[in-house]
């Protein structure tokens, strides 16, 4: 049976609080970054804090709390983590490619071009080669 929250042992309470704070703290930092970073391509990095260890921390806290308080292994939260991890890149790439397409069509920013392929490919090769050396 699930006990009231006050009845779980101290070590478990500390672990739950730690992971909960880390997870929600990272999600908050991600939201702040989403608000404050200057360009679209930089802003796109910020929410991944929430979808990686943000969700991971909350997930671990929930797993520890319900495992300890109900006295049996509870780990179905792991499914949330798996589905968030697997589905995030889809939305992410849709947004990023839409932005890339718009920036290339309007010619704004220093977005790498893909239109005139062979030329660009050699440019990129030469560019990266000289920087590697």
């Amino acid at each position: 049976m699930i006990q009231p929250a006050a009845d779980i042992p101290v070590w478990a309470a500390i672990a739950v609080a730690f992971f909960l704070l880390v997870g929600s703290g990272l999600a908050l930092i991600g939201a702040i970054g989403f608000l404050r970073l200057p360009t679209f391509y930089e802003r796109i990095h910020a929410p991944t804090l929430g979808t990686s260890w943000g969700i991971g921390g909350v997930m671990l806290a929930s797993m520890i709390f319900f495992t300890v308080s109900s006295g049996r292994l509870v780990f179905h939260e792991i499914l949330i983590g798996i589905f968030v991890t697997v589905t995030t890149p889809i939305t992410f790439m849709l947004l990023a490619r839409a932005a890339l397409h718009r920036d290339r069509a309007e010619g704004n920013g220093n977005v790498p071009d893909k239109q005139n392929k062979s030329q660009v490919a050699t440019d990129v090769l030469v560019g990266s080669g000289s920087r590697d050396v």
Binding site: H45, V86, P89, M93, R97
Partner: peptide
């Protein structure tokens, strides 16, 4: 690889070209 690089904050997978 796309999932790994996307879920790692700081790197974003934008576009894969299967031709080259």
């Amino acid at each position: 690889l796309a999932v790994v690089l996307t879920s790692t904050p700081g790197s974003a997978w934008l576009e894969y070209d299967s031709n080259d």
